[in-house]
Nucleic acid binder design. Structure first.
Lengths: 212, 212
DNA sequence: GCTTTAATGTAAACTCCCTTAACATGAGTT
DNA sequence: AACTCATGTTAAGGGAGTTTACATTAAAGC
């Protein structure tokens, strides 16, 4: 009967890739009940192994969460990079696409997003996690650098500040309005529209010309 | 010995105001270990009562958290209102003061803030909670209305949109950079400076004149 | 005073989680 | 074919949280 049994028979004694399976399980559980809504044992159960098995791969629950977050930052970076597309077709458009990619990630991968930003993990729990987060932010930073370069020399804001502003805007909107059912406050506009209009106003404030 | 015992002797069998005491205890615990970092029993222990006592006042842990959040929204509203000060000395200044008040609240009352925005509570778990949150947002909305009215009739953005933008900016910054040791990413500027500059740029983008 | 009622306390049953130790399996190596 | 290491499993101890049932105290009303 039970799936687990059949899976087990199919897979034999060894799972094959328990580490990844645990991360997957954690993602599922986070999506359902939040980063605090599951235990180490739950993850093991979901992956179809005994409660002791996870200890072969993660020191504790926090280490598992940290790996979910790290993996999340990697995919996040990839998604933002795709949005940026090396500044094509033009920096302004590409910059907006980064914003869209940000929201898309939060919406499509709420579990990763929660592990990354809402799990209460110390940002520098380990060097890998920190590095992954920094690389993701680096995409914003690169984009801001390119955009700033479009302005006349005397009117350039600090690119770091600008990238922090954009991060805060995107995170604020994603966090408050951006998840399917989490922060579901009824709104007359979508999170995407909200961010797009906000970025437009912000960039206009910096002196960027509006596209036709 | 132990405090608890002396307190107990002092207060007698009845606590007197256990409900509030539990909310206080929850705030302490949230401040220390996050909204997920304590149990119902912990709260009882902190308040110096038995593990069963809280059930007389809250159905479960979530109900307790919801009350912390509700109380938080009330104080939040009060703090934002004070910042707004009925639009004095002038709407633009007052609007910036609302932003400062927002960050100040997140910094001074991290426990309330976490319960309100990072506890994973459904925003409309109960009508009271929802109403308190709406009233707090109402302050932003009121301020945005007043500001928008300063612009010439043809250039007025929707005040609701504007208030959502501001909320997102403030929340984004508070959430990412605004708590003493939580999201501690080393930055060359304070959260306050970051929000102030961001609002300045944003308002400039809307066509507000810069103050001298 | 006596009774009633609300507010806690205590105790105990139940469940679940964490963690480690000891043993089992199996895949690749020699 | 035997060896070995990584990976899982069982089993067991120790804690802790939840929840209910029942006892106790304080305060208020008759």
């Amino acid at each position: 009967m039970s799936w687990k049994r059949r899976e087990r028979e199919a897979r034999g004694y060894h799972h094959g890739n328990l580490r990844e399976a645990l991360i997957q399980a954690a993602r599922e559980l986070i999506k359902e009940k939040g980063p605090a809504g599951f235990t180490f044992a739950d993850a093991a159960r979901s992956a179809g192994v005994s409660a002791a098995a996870p200890y072969r791969h993660f020191r504790d629950r926090e280490a598992l969460l940290a790996d979910v977050a790290r993996e999340g930052f990697q995919r996040f970076e990839a998604m933002l990079s795709t949005g940026w597309a090396n500044g094509k077709p033009d920096a302004l458009t590409a910059f907006n696409n980064v914003g869209k990619a940000y929201l898309a990630f939060a919406r499509v991968e709420p579990a990763y997003y929660a592990a990354m930003f809402e799990s209460g993990l110390p940002p520098d729990l380990n060097a890998d996690l920190r590095a992954a987060a920094d690389r993701a932010f680096g995409v914003l930073r690169t984009a801001a650098d390119a955009l700033v370069a479009l302005l006349p020399a005397g009117k350039r804001p600090p690119a770091l500040m600008m990238s922090l502003h954009v991060w805060a805007m995107a995170h604020g909107i994603a966090s408050l309005f951006g998840r399917g059912d989490a922060g579901r406050r009824a709104l007359p506009m979508t999170a995407e529209e909200l961010l797009e209009s906000q970025m437009l106003i912000y960039l206009q404030g910096l002196g960027f010309p509006q596209k036709a």
